Amino acid sequence: MFSVATLWIPFTIVAALGQVARNAMQRSLTGALGTWGATNIRFLFGFPFSVLFFVVVLAVSGDPMPVPTSAFWPWLLLGALSQIVATGLMLLAMNDRSFVVTTAYLKTEAIQTAIFGFVFLGDHLTALKVVAILIATIGVVITALRPGGEKGFAELKPTIIGLVSAAAFALSAVGFRGAIITVSGVSFVTAASFTLVLGLFVQTAVLTVYLLARAPKILQAIFGLWKPSMLAGFMGAFASQFWFLAFALTAAANVRTLALIEVLFAQAVAYYSFKQPVSAREISGIVLIVIGVALLVAA
């Protein structure tokens, strides 16, 4: 049985599953909508679902409507804007690399989240947790390596894009956790859901205004593809709901390290959906990821 303090573990696993599904859906829409059009899908079509989740949470919990403090908004803006940049760069990287390799680059986020969390939020990690983060991240790096002429770390531009995207995702995680923990007087579920609604509102407004000004035809195309976009938006909101619940309970670095199991899910998606084989090198990396994640949970 899980106590409330350890609920972040199943929350993170569910979120990672949802995120892999959403990433695969967004990737399939990038060709038709472009990078920023596909990016906006997770926000524009995810926002209504986040509102629905929040209404249900308020009704079940009986909590009052939260009132954000002045400290809430800077953290929320850091999380929301960083995630926009991170998602766009992620999809850009996916155009040049395999699905699994891109996911591997993004998972260097765990180390960066630990650093940013310590600097900005004072989140402290035990020595065992630091070792767990390093082992799991090394496993991710090994998974991403490709020999010879295959697309691996040798290509500088996509490598930089992937790593900068990971840094932006790390800042986003820290920003959203910072916002959630400033919401007081309500349960952690309500605080997380409230933050998600406002975060997606900001992201939807920013990207929709941008597309209206710079690429209105892409915005029209998004609504023309409303059926697959709706499903991607739902999966995005679903995954984010569980990410935020996890952030409400523990340091962002713990969540993002356990989230490295996403690489395992991505391997399955790549193998069954994109017909990309799994090499012995990737298997050895996966073993390290599993060891690192096991150490983190044990710690």
Rank of each mutant, 00 (worst) to 15 (best):
S3H: 14
S3G: 15
L7R: 12
P10H: 08
V14M: 03
A15K: 04
G18W: 08
G18I: 01
V20G: 04
A21Y: 08
A21C: 07
R22P: 03
A24G: 03
M25V: 00
R27S: 13
L29R: 10
G31N: 02
G31M: 05
A32C: 03
T35Q: 12
T39P: 03
F45N: 04
F45Y: 13
G46R: 10
F47Q: 11
F49G: 02
F49D: 04
V55S: 14
V57I: 12
L58R: 13
L58D: 04
A59F: 12
V60S: 11
S61K: 11
G62R: 00
M65H: 04
A71T: 12
A71C: 00
W75Y: 15
L78K: 13
L78V: 15
G79V: 13
L81H: 01
L81G: 10
Q83K: 00
Q83W: 02
I84N: 09
A86Q: 06
L89F: 11
L91G: 01
A93T: 15
A93M: 13
N95E: 15
N95A: 14
D96C: 02
T102A: 06
T102V: 11
T102N: 08
T103C: 03
T103P: 07
A104N: 08
L106H: 04
K107Y: 07
E109N: 09
A110R: 10
Q112D: 06
T113Q: 13
A114E: 09
G117K: 14
V119Q: 00
F120I: 14
F120Y: 12
L121R: 03
L121T: 09
L125G: 11
L125C: 10
K129G: 09
I135M: 02
T137W: 04
G139M: 09
R146W: 01
K151W: 02
T159M: 10
I160L: 15
I161Y: 06
I161M: 02
L163Q: 06
A166F: 10
F169S: 07
S172I: 06
A173R: 06
V174A: 00
F176R: 07
G178K: 07
I180L: 01
I180M: 01
T182A: 04
T182W: 03
G185I: 01
G185T: 10
G185F: 07
S187R: 09
F188M: 12
F188C: 00
F188N: 10
A191Y: 05
A192R: 08
S193R: 09
V197Q: 04
V197F: 11
L198V: 06
F201S: 13
Q203L: 00
A205C: 01
L207Y: 08
T208R: 02
A215N: 15
P216F: 09
K217G: 05
I218S: 05
I222C: 02
I222F: 00
I222L: 09
G224C: 05
P228L: 09
S229P: 03
L231T: 11
A232K: 04
A232H: 06
M235A: 07
F238C: 05
S240G: 05
Q241A: 13
F242A: 00
W243G: 02
F244P: 09
L245S: 13
L245Q: 14
A246Y: 12
A248M: 10
L249W: 11
A251Q: 08
A252S: 14
T257E: 06
I261G: 14
Q267H: 07
V269H: 00
A270F: 04
F274H: 06
R281D: 06
I283E: 10
S284K: 14
I291Y: 05
I291V: 15
V293Y: 06
L295T: 05
V297D: 11
A298P: 00
A298I: 04
